[in-house]
Design a protein around this nucleic acid. Structure first.
Length: 607
RNA sequence: GCCCUCAUCGUCCAACGGCUAGGACACCACUCUUUCAAGGUGGAGAUAGGGGUUCGAUUCCCCUUGGGGGCACCA
């Protein structure tokens, strides 16, 4: 029995770990308390987000608590902003930590920090000893061993002998050790590695074991009195009464060391679960060169938080059947560590996109309205305009035009970054002050019409745009493909305009009959009319069914878009040699301008 | 180098030791004779290799190979 008994305060006791295997589930009657403990790198990256998610899901599932602790025993980095960024990412995903974020009280100027007190206990219990070696000596020694191996393999890493290190200081006579400390000789505190294997039953990996000798004596307290990670983590987890330590499996080899500390402190062990890492498409650990790292980058790229949650959950876990599209509540319901995989997964943006599209398609239109207007604002900004100019109806009705800081631009982006998503939606005035109920209703109608296709909110916005835009751009490829013969198209569009102007009842069925009828009269396939018409209305080839589109757009706007198209096509036809678009240097966007009517036109207004 | 760990289509997941190894993304083809990034149908595509155990192995054991992580007075 390597563990000396050491008196502990019983009020700090956490639920005792029993011996039976739990299969990754919380035991009955146990209070679940988990924590997410990222190091403050400046943002919440996707790997961390998934670790947080598994913690959070587990807490939700078991009615437990989920707390955030910023892991920073290293004073290099500034905590407030980084904590803010992480909180921001978590908030966007809807994982709100219980209570305030905890910090490791490492740098409290005076007093006996908990960490130091625990270190002292380790020493008193005989589980640790003073090491008087200087950092320089150790470094030199390490380099020495490395150099020796280097002769054979260049790839040798430092610390290779460290693994089985038995520090000479361990052999020091306790009296001598104490005497040297007394005189003021600096020392670090080193925990004695045991002569037996250390194992535990991992929630994900099952039985784990590190053989005797594979762990060397390791430092827990620096000579300046500050704790090293392994001590701080254990100390804090005990203090916070963490019942389940769920973290990335890059911590796997820290666990036996931490178990040693728990034992030496006489504290019951929490359950440990080590979730696999997420890799990039090249199989390497996910990093910047694989693209976006921060979850908020995905927010800015038009992904939905529930899409991100769903995708992350599926990276390494499945419900066991074929279900893939999950709402957050369904996930909480279905999640279990029993089905979390041990192997690392590759982050696949294609699948994420598909899944996000599924979530967009399932989202109620009114929850999509805010983000769409926001995206449209961004698109307008890119061309140096404001949404008030590009989509007047939406701007007025959504109160954007009247809010200069948001309507024009540049700093609004930053402003948004500083606040969680829901606050930002409120700042946009979408929730309450939604102007005309008519526009809101119409926007919802349009969104419902187009939302089955796009994979991101930006793509959704591009689909919605033509229904409200003052003018539209003609996509080069669409023009090349469907407006190949400008003269003929112009003719067809003229006929169409005349016909549509006369229709009595502006209704999907009638529209279809009329248009097919027109095609027949002109002696062409319906496609010869419909395809060019689509380009005239949307400026792009990806679009909903044409008759629904016509019905939703309303007659007024349709006729104006047709007039614009005719103007554009006539100009094209007049160019020398040109039924083909000038692909070399022609302006990418057409000059259509449907004037004021685009704004706020419902079917009623149009007829 | 040492320790730990992982291994099913390109990718993400299924398959009490027992049907022809299943689904999803991506890809290809066809189709919806109205586009499409949407829908529908079909196709190609995997148990890393070698030994065992067993009537029978994707599944259990061993070895090899390959990937990942760790081995700090970093976290």
């Amino acid at each position: 029995m390597p563990t000396e008994e050491f008196p502990t305060r019983s009020d700090e006791a956490i639920p005792m770990r029993s011996d039976e295997t739990t299969g990754g589930e919380a035991r009955d009657g146990m209070t679940v308390r988990v924590r997410f403990a990222p190091s403050p790198t400046g943002f919440l990256h996707v790997g961390g987000a998934r670790t947080a998610l598994y913690n959070w899901l587990f807490a939700q599932r078991n009615g437990g608590e989920f707390i955030l602790r910023v892991e920073d025993t290293d004073r290099r980095r500034s905590r407030p902003e980084h904590t803010r960024a992480i909180l921001d990412g978590l908030a966007w995903l809807g994982m709100i930590p219980d209570g305030d974020p905890a910090f490791q009280p490492v740098f409290q100027a005076d007093g006996v920090s908990r960490h130091r007190a625990d270190a002292r206990r380790l020493l008193a219990a005989g589980a640790a000893y003073r090491c008087f070696c200087t950092a320089d000596e150790l470094k030199k020694e390490r380099e020495e061993t490395v150099r020796r191996r280097m002769a054979r393999k260049v790839a040798a890493r430092d610390g290779q002998r460290e693994g089985s290190r038995r520090d000479p200081c361990r052999l020091l006579d306790p009296a001598e050790s104490a005497a040297r400390a007394e005189v003021g000789e600096p020392f670090a505190l080193r925990v004695k590695a045991p002569d037996e294997a250390i194992g535990w039953d991992d929630m994900i990996h099952g039985p784990m074991s590190y053989p005797a000798g594979s762990i060397g004596d390791f430092i827990v307290l620096r000579s300046d009195g500050t704790p090293v990670y392994n001590l701080a983590a254990v100390s804090d987890d005990i203090h916070s009464m963490i019942s389940h330590v769920i973290r990335g499996d890059d911590h796997l080899s820290n666990t036996p060391k931490q178990i040693l500390i728990y034992r030496a402190l006489g504290k019951p062990l929490p359950d440990f679960g080590h979730v696999p890492m997420i890799r990039g498409p090249d199989g390497k650990r996910l990093s910047k060169r694989h693209g976006a790292m921060s979850v908020t980058d995905y927010r800015d790229d038009g992904y939905l938080p529930e899409g991100m949650i769903n995708f992350l959950a599926l990276l390494g876990w499945s419900p066991g059947d074929d279900r893939e599209v999950f709402g957050v509540d369904e996930l909480v319901e279905a999640f279990s560590f029993r089905r979390v995989l041990k192997k690392s997964a590759v982050f696949d943006l294609d699948k994420f996109g598909w899944l996000n599209g599924q979530h967009i398609a399932r989202s109620p239109a009114d929850s999509l309205a805010g983000p769409v207007v926001e995206a449209l604002t961004g698109i307008a900004r890119q061309s140096g305009r404001t949404i008030a100019e590009t989509h007047p109806g939406l701007a007025e009705n959504y109160g954007l035009a009247s809010n200069p800081s948001l309507a024009d631009g540049a700093e609004s982006d930053e402003r948004r970054r500083m606040q969680p998503a829901d606050e930002s939606a409120q700042a946009l005035g979408l929730a309450k002050n939604a102007g005309s109920a008519d526009t809101a209703k119409r926007l919802a109608e349009v969104i419902d019409l187009v939302k089955c296709r796009p994979r991101t909110l930006h793509a959704l916005a591009r689909q919605v745009s033509p229904f409200f835009a003052k003018s539209i751009d003609y996509d080069e490829d669409a023009v090349a493909r469907f407006w190949k013969n400008a003269g003929e198209c112009a003719g067809h569009m003229r006929h169409l305009a005349t016909r549509l102007a006369e229709i009595v009842s502006w209704d999907t069925g009638v529209l279809e009959r009329e248009i097919r009828g027109l095609a027949a009269e002109l002696g062409v396939g319906a496609g010869r009319i419909i395809n060019p018409l689509r380009v005239a209305l949307m400026g792009q080839s990806v679009a909903p069914g044409i008759f629904d589109m016509l019905a939703t757009m309303g007659r007024g706007l349709v006729l104006e878009r047709l007039a614009d198209a005719v103007r554009f096509l006539d100009a094209r036809a007049a160019l020398p040699g040109s039924s083909l678009p000038d692909s070399s240097n022609g302006p990418r966007r057409g000059t259509a301008d449907s004037g004021q009517r685009a704004a706020g036109l419902g079917r009623g207004a149009a007829t």
